[in-house]
């Protein structure tokens, strides 16, 4: 008996978004990164095309994050300098691009000035030849000032700027339109708000073909299943022809996993859980692999061995 073919037939394509600009394109990158463009779900190459593999962006912060010592050790001394950290991410860890978080700008933290932040961005840009993702500190008012200056020093580099929310999208659109950057649209694990932010971006005159969608990220054990389903639903909506939901997606795994005790606490605190030096990177890799399957196109990651694992996973499924 013949088993009927039950392949899914999607009617639409996810937007292709290119980050970075080479000298010909008005930038200074040696290569650009393109994500999206697929006509099927992750790994389902028998149903459609996946022209661009998912990519890994190395997590870099302008100030040293509150991370466990074993993670800092795994990254090395370079963690103390954003430029060296970024270089190591590219040269040693093999990251495709850099995700630079300006955590130091946080008014309740170091409260660094916009000029200082812009200097960091400028230096990181010079230190590596891959495209950049640039995030503020998460405080809307401060980010409005910080991102404006940071965006200006990388004008023409076609960076990906994060993130535009319902509360601050107007500022982000103005900045990115002025300096020709791409935008990350962010929503709090809610597919409808995700779509609403995209509509607001579009109404503000920004082309959704230049948008990467971000539904925030949860670590395994902290709501990963919720975010997973949202990424998956968003992707299916996009493949079914909803142009407002056809953007590639980003997951900030490295920014999230290292905040949870399950990944970082010692065996004394969690007896029977095993050595955190192995547990932590496994946790990060497991989360990243989940988000790959959910439909993430850009994974922001931190631990070198987790990065290595996922690089292999990507070659296997793509």
């Amino acid at each position: 008996m013949d088993i009927p073919k039950v392949n899914e037939r999607w009617t639409s394509q996810i937007n292709e978004v290119t980050i970075g600009a080479t000298a010909d394109q008005g930038g200074t990158r040696s290569k650009v990164i393109t994500v999206g463009g697929q006509t099927t779900l992750p790994g389902m190459t028998f149903e459609g095309d996946i022209p661009n593999s998912p990519v890994i962006a190395g997590y870099v912060s302008d100030v040293v994050p509150e991370w466990p010592d074993f993670l800092k050790k795994a990254i090395g001394n370079e963690i103390n300098s954003p430029t060296e950290w970024a270089q190591k991410c590219v040269q040693e860890f093999g990251c495709d691009l850099i995700s630079l978080r300006l955590n130091g700008a946080d008014p309740s933290g170091d409260d660094k000035s916009a000029a200082d932040c812009a200097k960091v961005v400028e230096n990181v840009l010079k230190a590596v030849d891959v495209p950049l993702i640039i995030w503020g500190c998460g405080d809307d008012d401060k980010d409005a000032i910080v991102l404006q200056d940071c965006s200006a020093v990388v004008k023409g580099e076609n960076c990906l700027i994060g993130s535009a929310k319902e509360s601050n999208y107007k500022t982000i659109v103005a900045i990115c339109k002025a300096d020709n950057h791409k935008i990350i649209s962010e929503a709090p694990v809610d597919i409808n708000i995700g779509k609403q932010v995209n509509i607001l971006l579009q109404d503000a005159g920004y082309d959704l073909k230049d948008v990467v969608m971000f539904q925030t990220t949860a670590a395994l054990g902290y709501g990963l299943d919720y975010v997973y389903t949202i990424l998956e639903r968003a992707r299916m909506t996009g493949l079914k022809g909803d142009k407002l939901m056809a953007g590639p997606q980003l997951a900030d795994v490295g920014g999230e996993v290292w905040r949870i005790k399950d990944a970082v606490a010692s065996e004394e605190i969690l007896p029977g859980w095993g050595d955190p030096e192995r547990r932590g990177p496994s946790w990060e890799a497991a989360c990243a692999a989940d988000y790959l399957q959910a439909g993430a196109d850009i994974l922001v990651m931190s631990h070198p061995s987790a990065i290595k694992t996922i690089q292999e996973t990507i070659t296997q499924i793509a």
Binding site: D190, N192, I193, K195, Q196, I199, D242, L244
Partner: peptide, 16 residues
């Protein structure tokens, strides 16, 4: 709740 959230927009999230 999902339908409500979709409608919490002018006119609606499914503007189509």
């Amino acid at each position: 709740v999902e339908e409500f959230q979709k409608a919490m927009f002018l006119p609606h999230t499914d503007i189509e």
